[in-house]
Simulated assay, not measured.
Amino acid sequence: MEVTGIISALLIGIVIGALGRLVVPGRQSIPIWLTIVIGIVSAFIGTAIAAVLGVADTGGIDWIELVIQIVVAAGGVTVAAGLYGRQRRELPQR
């Protein structure tokens, strides 16, 4: 996958973030902007991992690369949901 611009990076980030969020069971109380950021970062990290494994440039759709990106996004959503939820619980109650 080659990200050629900001628009395509945002679109890929939205899709990867949403898929990563769907893979994680339960409800994640994180904002949508954080899901998009996680998706964008996961797309870049997943592409780098796929390049190291030698599966980044295959004929047709790079399914293995896509799965790697979704797994990275699911991990990012899980970590972010845990940290974001913990941060919100530590605020003093009024």
Rank of each mutant, 00 (worst) to 15 (best):
I70S: 01
G26V: 12
G60D: 14
S29N: 14
I36D: 00
V24Y: 08
R21I: 06
A18Y: 12
V3W: 01
Q69G: 10
I36W: 04
V77G: 02
G5E: 09
R88A: 15
G75E: 02
A51R: 13
S8I: 11
V41C: 10
G54V: 13
M1P: 04
P25S: 15
V15Y: 04
G75L: 04
I16T: 13
I40A: 15
I36E: 00
V55Q: 06
L91F: 04
V24D: 06
A50C: 08
G75D: 01
A48V: 13
L22P: 01
L66V: 10
R21Q: 13
L10C: 07
D57P: 00
A43T: 05
I49M: 03
L19W: 07
L10D: 00
A74Q: 02
L91V: 09
V3C: 02
I68Y: 02
V72Y: 04
I14Y: 07
G76W: 01
I14Q: 04
E65L: 10
I6P: 02
V15I: 15
E65S: 14
I7D: 09
G5K: 11
W63R: 11
R86T: 06
I61P: 04
S29M: 11
I49C: 01
I40M: 15
G59S: 14
T4M: 10
G76N: 05
I7N: 10
I30K: 09
P25K: 15
A50K: 05
V72G: 03
G75C: 01
A74Y: 02
V23T: 15
P92T: 14
G17Q: 03
I14N: 05
R88H: 09
I49W: 02
A9Q: 09
I61N: 13
L10S: 05
V79H: 05
V72E: 04
T4I: 13
Q69A: 15
R88S: 10
A50P: 02
R86Q: 07
G5A: 09
I32H: 08
R86H: 08
S42M: 09
G76E: 02
Q87P: 00
R27F: 09
A50F: 04
T35M: 08
T4K: 15
A56S: 13
R86G: 00
A80S: 07
P25Y: 12
L34H: 03
V23D: 08
L22M: 14
V67G: 05
G59R: 11
I30R: 09
Q28D: 11
V24A: 11
A73L: 05
G5L: 06
W63Y: 14
V55N: 07
V15H: 03
V24G: 06
V15S: 07
V71H: 02
W33D: 13
T58K: 10
S8G: 08
